[in-house]
C-alpha cells in the first residue's frame, strides 16, 4: 500500500475580501490515521478541507497528498485518491437514483458499465444500503442520504476520506450507525465536526482551529479533557467526559 499521507506546510488562505481564513497552517497526517478538526463556527475548518482537494488554492504554502503536490495539473489524480463528503448530502446527490449517484464517480473515470456496476454494488454493500439502490435520493431520510453520499465516494476507491460535519442533523440511531461505519474504515480520515462525542469514538488525534490558526494538535483524550482550551475555542467538553449532573461522578 502506498503512503496516504497528507502534508500541509505553512498554508495561508485569504478570502477575496482580505479576510484571512487560514493563517500559517502546518501539519502532517499519516497513513491510516483518523484526525478530527474541531473549532467554533468560522474557524476555517471547511476552508481547510476545500484547499486539500483543490477547490480553493492557498495564497501561499504547500499541500501534498501522498507524494503528489496539490496543483491545477494534479487535480484529477488528487481527487481520485480523496473521497469528500459534504455537510449537506443534498448538494452531493444530484442524480435521479441512488445507483446513478454512486455510479457518477466511476463513470467519470470512464470505467466500463460492468466495472461500474461492480463498484457500485460493493460500495452499497459496505454502507449497508443495497436496498436503496433504485430509489430517488430526494425521497430518502437524512440518515439514508448521508449513507448514500458516503457510498458515492467509496465507489471511487479512495485512499483518504474527508468528511465535513458527517453527523450533523442525524438522529441518534443514524449517528451511531455512522460511527460504527467509520470505525470499520481503514482509510486515512480527516473529519471536521462539532460532535465531540463522535470525535472521542472515532478519532485518535484532534486538531483545534481558531481564527485560521492551529490552537492545539494532539491526542483526542488530552485535548477534550482540557476544559480551558475548549472554552477558549468556543467549544465544550463532550458530555461523556463531563461529570454526571445527578451524582457528580464520572
Amino acid at each position: 500500500m502506498s503512503h496516504h499521507k497528507i502534508i500541509l506546510e505553512e498554508v495561508i488562505y485569504t478570502y477575496p475580501d482580505g479576510k484571512e481564513a487560514l493563517n500559517n497552517i502546518s501539519f502532517e497526517v499519516h497513513h491510516g490515521e483518523s484526525v478530527a478538526i474541531i473549532g467554533s463556527n468560522g474557524a476555517g475548518k471547511s476552508t481547510l478541507l476545500l484547499t486539500l482537494v483543490g477547490i480553493l488554492f492557498p495564497s501561499s504554502g504547500k499541500i501534498t497528498i501522498g507524494d503528489v503536490p496539490v496543483t491545477k495539473q494534479t487535480l484529477s489524480l488528487i481527487r481520485q485518491k480523496i473521497g469528500f463528503t459534504f455537510q449537506n448530502a443534498d448538494d452531493q446527490l444530484f442524480n435521479g437514483s441512488v445507483y446513478d449517484d454512486v455510479a457518477f464517480g466511476p463513470r467519470n473515470y470512464k470505467l466500463s458499465e460492468s466495472d461500474v456496476e461492480k463498484k457500485v454494488s460493493k460500495a452499497l454493500e459496505i454502507v449497508g444500503i443495497t436496498h436503496l439502490r433504485d430509489r430517488p435520493p430526494y425521497k430518502l431520510s437524512g440518515g439514508e442520504k448521508r449513507s448514500v453520499s458516503i457510498a458515492a465516494v467509496l465507489s471511487m476507491d479512495p485512499d483518504i476520506l474527508l468528511m465535513d460535519e458527517p453527523s450533523a442533523a442525524l438522529d441518534p440511531k443514524s449517528r451511531r450507525r455512522l460511527i460504527n461505519l467509520l470505525l470499520d474504515f481503514k482509510h486515512t480520515k480527516l473529519i471536521t465536526t462539532h460532535d465531540l462525542d463522535m470525535v472521542l469514538d472515532v478519532c485518535d488525534r484532534t486538531i483545534v482551529l481558531g481564527n485560521g490558526k492551529i490552537l492545539a494538535d494532539g491526542s483526542t483524550v488530552d485535548i477534550l479533557n482540557d476544559e480551558k482550551l475548549l472554552d477558549e475555542c468556543g467549544l465544550e467538553k463532550p458530555l461523556s467526559l463531563q461529570s454526571c449532573p445527578i451524582c457528580n461522578k464520572r
Partner: peptide, 14 residues
C-alpha cells in the same frame, strides 16, 4: 457546492 461535488468525483462536463 453541487458543482464542487461534481468535479470532486471527476466530472469534466460529460
Amino acid at each position: 457546492r453541487i458543482y464542487n461535488g461534481m468535479v470532486l468525483r471527476g466530472f469534466s462536463g460529460e
